[in-house]
């Protein structure tokens, strides 16, 4: 059986080279589009997750929470903040530090104000909370809101800010990008299943006589279908591998061009091609898609017995 499958595959490529090549080109093009979107999506997510890294929460302190290290209330509050699930680090920022930071950031816009020695920035002291990667990467706005609510009940906490509105918009944007990417991949994948299926159908039509002769000499439907499924698997494997190479070369070309024209973006380190695991999964999915669509279309085969049932009165 295995010998027959391989012999059939070899024969198909030798005697129907034109049809097979056309199918391969169309299929590889479809898969290359999917691969490009996956690469684009992955890089977009990477860039967006860099923004996510800046997620932090500021807990402004009440006036009576004094700044000296011996203040029991301050130490107690810091300990409670550190104990919250998802919190990575808690850093104290005094009034003076907040004022200095403000001056540094705004001096370019209002130099005359900040040159005034007696200028006192109206900022309270605060705790800056940074979060663990898991929470940042997920952009878990619900959990952040929960944490903010929890902290608001702590003694000594005046107000909490973490850019709620911006974060909500950002989370919605990321969710939208992910959903769109998934939908697009599904549409393109269905399209490629259709392409393989159509090509197998064409292949079946072109070899109707051959199939009838196989039936004539006693081939079971599985003996007729499996070589077609193997053809589909092989086409899927070849097309997805070609697609990965095409996308890789296109990606490298674009990255090199960007690196020359926009060197300040650190393109080489930020833009990455799909990882080995993703490439493996992509090729596996492409191969399985080819086999499945061939199996699906080849299921409709049968000329001898069923044909008589159709023609009966």
């Amino acid at each position: 059986m295995n010998q027959m499958l391989w012999a059939n595959l070899k024969r198909t490529w030798t005697h129907h080279f034109g049809t097979q090549m056309t199918t391969l080109i169309v299929l590889a093009a479809s898969y290359a589009i999917i691969c490009s979107f996956l690469t684009l999506g992955q890089n977009l997510r990477n860039i967006l997750s860099l923004w996510g890294d800046s997620i932090q929460m500021t807990v402004f302190l009440k006036e009576e929470t004094k700044e000296d290290s011996g203040n029991e209330k301050l130490t107690q509050l810091k300990t409670r903040l550190q104990a919250i699930n998802g919190v990575d680090d808690v850093k104290y920022v005094s009034k003076q530090e907040a004022a200095e930071k403000f001056k540094m950031e705004m001096s370019g816009f209002m130099p005359e104000v900040f040159q005034d020695e007696e200028f006192i920035a109206p900022f309270p002291s605060s705790f800056i909370i940074s979060f663990k990667d898991q929470l940042k990467q997920k952009i878990d706005t619900l959990r952040l809101a929960e944490i903010a609510k929890q902290i608001s009940g702590f003694e000594g906490a005046e107000d909490i800010a973490y850019g709620q509105d911006w974060l909500n918009n950002y989370a919605s944007f990321i969710k939208g990008i992910n959903s769109m990417g998934l939908a697009l991949v599904l549409v393109l994948l269905s399209g490629s299943v259709f392409v393989v299926g159509t090509s197998i159908k064409t292949s079946i039509s072109a070899r109707r006589d051959e199939i009838e002769i196989m039936e004539l000499v006693g081939a079971t439907s599985q003996m007729i279908r499996w070589p077609l499924v193997v053809e589909g698997l092989f086409l899927g494997l070849l097309a997805s591998t070609v697609a990965v190479f095409l996308t890789f070369f296109a990606f490298t070309f674009v990255r090199e061009s960007m690196a020359t024209q926009a060197f300040f973006l650190a393109v080489q380190s930020q833009f990455q091609f799909l990882s080995g695991l993703y490439v493996f999964l992509f090729i596996s999915t492409g191969t399985i898609c080819g086999g499945l669509s061939a199996f699906f279309f080849a299921r409709k085969l049968n000329h001898g017995w069923l044909a008589s049932q159709r023609s009966e009165v």
Partner: peptide
């Protein structure tokens, strides 16, 4: 003959 038996008959 069922559909599955036809090939064996033809042999």
């Amino acid at each position: 003959l069922t559909e599955k038996e036809v090939p064996y008959f033809r042999r």
